[in-house]
């Protein structure tokens, strides 16, 4: 801009609007002015695009934190079932046992162990099994981490009935008479190191028991195996998460470290990975009516221990059936 003013001053000194050299100078000035205007437009366009992007991202994250149960789209689910079936049948050789243990109707809290890093093939398989067994017409929701819903696949998951994990959203889904799938172990359990793959680890998160009691719904434990063999999970990275303070800023308790395709060493697993074709088996256990079994004022810790012990026993039985990792 200083150069522009300098040139203008020189033009004034040279006689303003007279012809000859003055005219050439005026043309140069006009050209410079045009470039400056064009540059300003580009900058404004860039700022506008950046603003739109930031605004869009902020809106997406905000939206991910709210639960609109109406986002579930039965027609979309129905039309995408063949693709899910192909993936779970050909790649994961999936098997779901005893779906009949899920009550035929009414609200129910499905409590599952979680495995497979951010790719979670157990969720894919169980969701397919639920919708093919009961039909896409039955309301079914799954709770997921905020960041999962804010990711590019969040929009697809939302149409499948996935909502951000929070007690309010869970309560709202159950109040609507839906089946609700929760993973109390969440981001902690999904990244368990490979040597702990046959362990149910909810990190003492007992909220699901209170949720079932408040809503007065049965708990149906769901146990899956195989997901933790889709990559070589080495560490939660819990200390790293605390050191980087993402446990507070992003509700991330872990920054997992694994060996996974196609990255080799995979830190964070934020971009996901290509899962190994491990055989996934899911077993649904009998429903637990908490008040009928533990009395009107049950001890939450006792119920938690009962559920996790049942799931651990089942997981060990499923593990005993497996002869080889990945192959199953």
């Amino acid at each position: 801009m200083a150069d522009q003013e300098g040139l203008a001053e020189q033009a004034k000194r040279n006689g303003g609007e007279s012809g000859g050299e003055d005219g050439a100078l005026r043309d140069r000035l006009a050209a410079f002015d045009g470039i400056a205007r064009a540059g300003g437009s580009v900058v404004r366009a860039g700022q506008s695009a950046a603003g739109e992007f930031a605004g869009g991202l902020a809106a997406r994250i905000r939206r991910s934190l709210t639960a609109d149960l109406d986002d579930r789209d039965p027609d979309y689910i129905r039309e995408s079932l063949p693709l899910t079936w192909l993936l779970t049948t050909l790649w994961f050789r999936g098997e779901v046992r005893n779906m009949g243990n899920v009550p035929e109707q009414g609200p129910v809290l499905l409590v599952a162990n979680h495995s497979g890093g951010n790719m979670t093939p157990d969720t894919l398989l169980f969701t397919l099994a639920f919708y093919t067994y009961f039909g896409v017409e039955r309301a079914f929701y799954q709770l997921a981490h905020n960041l999962v819903l804010a990711s590019p696949v969040g929009q697809i998951l939302r149409r499948y009935g996935t909502v951000a994990a929070s007690p309010e959203h869970a309560q709202r889904a159950l109040d609507a008479g839906a089946a609700l799938l929760v993973y109390p172990g969440g981001d902690w359990e999904v990244h368990l190191p490979i040597w702990e793959r046959h362990k149910v680890d909810f990190a003492n998160r007992q909220g699901f028991v209170r949720l079932a009691l408040d809503a007065g719904v049965p708990i149906v434990p769901v146990v899956s195996i195989g997901g933790q063999e889709t990559a070589l999970f080495l560490s939660h990275g819990g200390r790293l998460a605390r050191a980087l303070r993402v446990d507070r800023t992003l509700r991330l308790k872990v920054i997992p470290i694994s060996l996974a395709l196609p990255w080799g060493v995979n830190v964070g697993d934020l971009l996901g990975h290509i899962p190994l074709p491990a055989k996934i088996t899911v077993e649904v256990l009998a429903p637990i009516d908490v008040r009928a079994q533990f009395g009107n004022e049950p001890d939450v810790g006792e119920v938690y221990d009962h559920v996790t012990n049942l799931m651990q026993e089942t997981l060990e039985t499923l593990a005993a059936e497996r002869r080889f990792p990945v192959i199953g």
């Binding site: 027609d75 129905r78 039309e79 995408s80 079932l81 063949p82 693709l83 079936w85 192909l86 049948t89 050909l90």
Partner: peptide
């Protein structure tokens, strides 16, 4: 079959 499932639906029919 599954109406509206496109190419994945067609492949799934063949595979099954």
């Amino acid at each position: 079959g599954v109406a509206g499932s496109g190419i994945p639906g067609w492949i799934a029919e063949l595979v099954s």
